[in-house]
């Protein structure tokens, strides 16, 4: 009985407490830089698309909301011809970002993307692709990868040794 009365009294005292509500549209809450929100596709420091259309993000996605189609440039660079994310399905788990070997796909601290029509939540490549580098300023996949592309041959990548010549006898 005493505990009941005490509860009532304590709750009554809340009359004089500060409210914890953040009145959202007028005052915005702080979002951490690593907040998992709207997804973007970034470019490398040279301004080329980072995505190499490896499909890893589409495979990693637990709700299968990423659709993409591989295309190939002259010289052997891959790129996504189409890249579509259905945000009405996305659960913002960040697995795509984890899976991506090129830091192309990134989640950003933005969640204000509500729509009246579901179809407007399907973002195409031109909606996703940004002109900057996102969270990883200096990184360029082709500069560290062994693949030969125009302007960079085998063995010319950072930290890469010259290719091994199998016809040589020396070890």
């Amino acid at each position: 009985m005493y505990s009941l009365l005490r509860t009532i009294w304590l709750i009554f005292l809340h009359l004089f407490h500060r409210r914890v509500t953040v009145e959202y549209p007028e005052r915005k809450a702080y979002l951490a830089p690593r907040w998992r929100g709207r997804i973007i596709l970034s470019r490398d420091p040279d301004g080329e698309e980072r995505c190499v259309a490896c499909y890893l993000c589409a495979v990693a996605c637990p709700v299968d909301c990423i659709f993409l189609q591989k295309g190939e440039l002259v010289g052997g660079r891959w790129y996504p011809q189409q890249f579509r994310i259905n945000f009405s399905r996305c659960i913002f788990c960040g697995y795509c970002e984890e899976a991506c070997p090129t830091y192309a796909i990134q989640l950003t601290p933005d969640f204000e993307m509500s729509e009246y029509d579901r179809h407007n939540l399907v973002y195409e490549k031109e909606d996703l692709l940004i002109s900057g580098v996102g969270k990883y300023p200096g990184y360029s996949f082709y500069r560290v990868a062994g693949l030969a592309i125009p302007g960079k041959d085998k063995g010319q990548a950072e930290n890469e040794e010259p290719p091994f010549d199998p016809k040589r006898l020396l070890p």
Binding site: I11, F12, H14, L15, H17, R18, R19, V20, T21, E23
Partner: peptide, 8 residues
């Protein structure tokens, strides 16, 4: 109720 639960 809002008042007693520290909200609006």
């Amino acid at each position: 109720l809002g008042l007693w639960q520290d909200r609006y």
